[in-house]
Design a protein around this nucleic acid. Structure first.
Lengths: 217, 217
DNA sequence: TTGATTACATACCAACTGGTCGGTATTCTT
DNA sequence: AAGAATACCGACCAGTTGGTATGTAATCAA
């Protein structure tokens, strides 16, 4: 595929010369884009360097190996997404279930972007590396778990106020990631974000049924 | 990773000499295993040939390129899974919703196998190839769509007998694939099949709520 | 100011990559 | 029986792979 690949991946062109101190960040940025477009294994170190506007010397100065870059990429992803969701106003709504539903609105909004842009770095890399690279798998695990946290406290609060027999906040939070990751795969396969959106719609309906909220439509 | 990969992938050892006429099938078989363990891009043609007990000459006699093998692999996967589900007794239950629930039981059973064994070939490859290889993406689309068919007729029948406002059989069938694919990713990331099982549990509860069936627990 | 440390750049390398090509043994067709 | 087609082998190749070794300019601590 590397040789035959007919579809070039568009990467933001870096400046002619990257300022000192920015190489590491630019490499991770380039990796984020390339990995989302073509996966980890299919992305070469040379490609990464070219996209980041940096030489190989810089790469291996900052990362002991390609695998180490992968770990750093996923860790950066965890922090990035964590900061994004933490900063969002949905967290400030008074009712916990409203917060969860607003979170779903936000997720659906994100699906308005191009496919690669809402693709999940952790989900993509873990498919390739769950067995072949324990360090990357562990980084992906931390990332996915941090994703639980975006809804877990709200679900706990909602369930504390209104328990649902047989349903835990933890497994419900997991289900948000299931819908996210599964939706992305369907969107990629069908080349259409609609199934990803529908996944969140069904999850919302499920929550409304569980908590006795009126179901839309 | 190719060089540094510390975890060798176990592949069933082929006989010393593969009988004439079996090369193609053995290559696809080897690809199924290797791709599930390490992904498509990370699996080399040499590796494929070694695992299949076949030379490169045989490989490129049967497949024009590595990409062509990928397409054939996904197509074989579609047929294989299609035959497996079609042959299963869950299809013969009188009530359509019972058939759907029995399908979920079957899916949960499959999760008793090792991680790589319940990993989905279409879901894995489409993550890597959705942009870089249109032919593979299209093969994956056919595979995923054929997955819809395992529950779609039953859902249509169930909804015909008992309509649920705002819910179509098509989008509900999609949700089965969302749960499957999302569950697999969570299982890989957390290195535990439990979240995949939980995904089907939640889907079952959702269905029971939609159709007014008693919810377990 | 100076010496050490950091942050790169450049050239290079052995191993591997997907793929080609000429050949041979088996099977099919007539 | 003979010719054609199929299935496969094995050596070879140019390009790419992740990674290294060496050098140098900027920054920092003293």
């Amino acid at each position: 595929m590397t040789a035959a690949s007919p579809v070039p991946v568009p990467v933001p062109v870096p400046p002619v010369r990257v300022p000192r101190g920015e190489a590491r960040a630019r490499l991770i940025e380039a990796a984020r884009s390339l990995v989302r477009h073509k996966g980890f294994a299919a992305t070469s170190v040379d490609e990464l360097c070219a996209a980041a506007g940096v030489t190989k010397g810089a790469f291996f100065h900052h990362f002991a190996s390609k695998e180490a870059l992968g770990v750093a990429l996923v860790e950066d992803w965890t922090q990035m997404t964590g900061a994004m969701f933490a900063a969002h106003p949905y967290n400030t709504l008074p009712d916990p279930l409203d917060r969860v539903l607003a979170y779903l609105d936000l997720r659906r909004e994100i699906l308005g972007q191009p496919l690669a842009e809402f693709s999940c770095v952790a989900g993509t890399t873990v498919q390739e590396a769950y067995e072949s690279s324990p360090p990357m798998r562990e980084a992906a695990e931390r990332s996915i778990r941090s994703g639980f946290a975006h809804v877990l406290p709200h679900l706990q609060e909602a369930l504390a106020a209104q328990p649902v027999p047989g349903v835990t906040a933890e497994s419900l939070a997991q289900q948000f990631q299931v819908a996210t990751q599964g939706g992305i795969i369907l969107a990629k396969a069908l080349n259409d974000p609609a199934p990803a959106r529908a996944a969140f719609d069904h999850l919302e309906r499920y929550l409304r049924l569980l908590f006795g909220r009126p179901v839309k439509r």
